[in-house]
């Protein structure tokens, strides 16, 4: 809002612009400001930042946040390792399969998480019953380890597919993958080298986008984790809000700021890497 110039508003053609900006700003900032005021203005005590200082000390904060970040890292790694080679292969080998893959990758948007987790829960219950005498039983136990629930990673990979597909598709569209790979191959690069040296560096923007969208998804995901009985960050916030309302809102505000900070960090990291490679040449 600081950038709003009153002189501009006076000019008639641009009148609608500040208006839209003010409306949008109010829409986003009023709830945020209300949250902040709620956390710092304690009735009878005046302004205090106790809610924020308490956060670190509250039981479960660090562990749940760490769990969420670990899950996010694992999900990003798995989904990119799965999707990048698949999308490149799709472009090079079977362009006619693209609509099929697009529909499959978009399915998680159509299937509501609640239905998804219901199915997942059924399998998790059914599996151990029928497989109790086989080594697979241990697998079912292992993927539900509350310290690091692999099953959540698997679920999040599926849920991140639509976003990652779209981000990577946009990135691949912007370049001629086939020619770049062939150019690299005629320069003596084998397949993995061509992929890593010629294609991936030109996909950096798309990779960062995918990573960030996945990170945001995992940090904010509640339904699946809650219904499967795990306790990552979003679940912890909701649990805590029952007993300590101010604290939970403070955490929400903080997590919003943290997400913004990460977005800025990723964006500036991408920008710096680009200028760094520019000066290196």
């Amino acid at each position: 809002m600081a950038g709003l110039n009153p002189g501009r508003a006076a000019r008639r053609p641009a009148l609608w612009r500040p208006l839209v900006l003010v409306c949008a700003g109010l829409y986003f900032l009023v709830p945020l400001a209300a949250s902040v005021i709620f956390t710092v203005d304690v009735p009878g005590e005046g302004v205090t930042f106790d809610a924020y200082t308490q956060i670190l000390g509250t039981e479960g904060f660090v562990s749940s946040l760490l769990l969420s970040l670990e899950l996010a890292a694992a999900t990003i790694a798995v989904v990119l390792l799965l999707m990048v080679p698949a999308m490149v292969a799709l472009r090079l080998g079977a362009p006619r399969l693209r609509p099929v893959v697009e529909v499959v990758c978009s399915l998680p948007l159509v299937v509501p998480p609640i239905a998804f987790v219901a199915g997942l829960g059924t399998v998790l219950k059914w599996g151990p019953e029928h497989l109790s005498r086989t080594p697979l039983f241990q697998t079912f136990v292992a993927i539900q380890n509350p310290d690091f629930p692999v099953v959540l990673v698997l679920a999040y990979v599926v849920m991140a597919l639509p976003f990652v597909y779209r981000a990577l598709d946009a990135g691949l569209r912007a370049m001629d993958v086939r020619t770049l790979v062939e150019a690299a191959r005629s320069c003596g690069a084998n397949w993995p080298q061509a992929l890593v040296r010629a294609v991936l560096p030109n996909l950096r923007g798309a990779l960062l986008n995918s990573a960030f969208l996945t990170l945001a998804l995992v940090l904010g995901e509640f339904t699946v984790a809650q219904l499967l009985g795990f306790r990552p960050f979003a679940v912890w916030i909701v649990n805590v809000s029952g007993s300590q309302a101010q604290l939970s809102v403070a955490v929400s505000v903080l997590s919003l700021l943290v997400t913004w900070a990460m977005l800025l960090a990723l964006a500036s990291f991408g920008g710096r890497a680009r200028t760094a490679s520019a000066s290196r040449g």
Binding site: T179, L180, A183, C187, P201
Partner: peptide
């Protein structure tokens, strides 16, 4: 075999020098 393509075959993320040096790097 060295190949020159129709167009747009240079690696966009590398400078001209690094493009030429790509094969030597491999």
């Amino acid at each position: 075999a060295g190949m020159v393509f129709q167009s747009y075959s240079l690696f966009p993320h590398l400078s001209a020098l690094d493009n030429v040096a790509f094969g030597l790097r491999m």
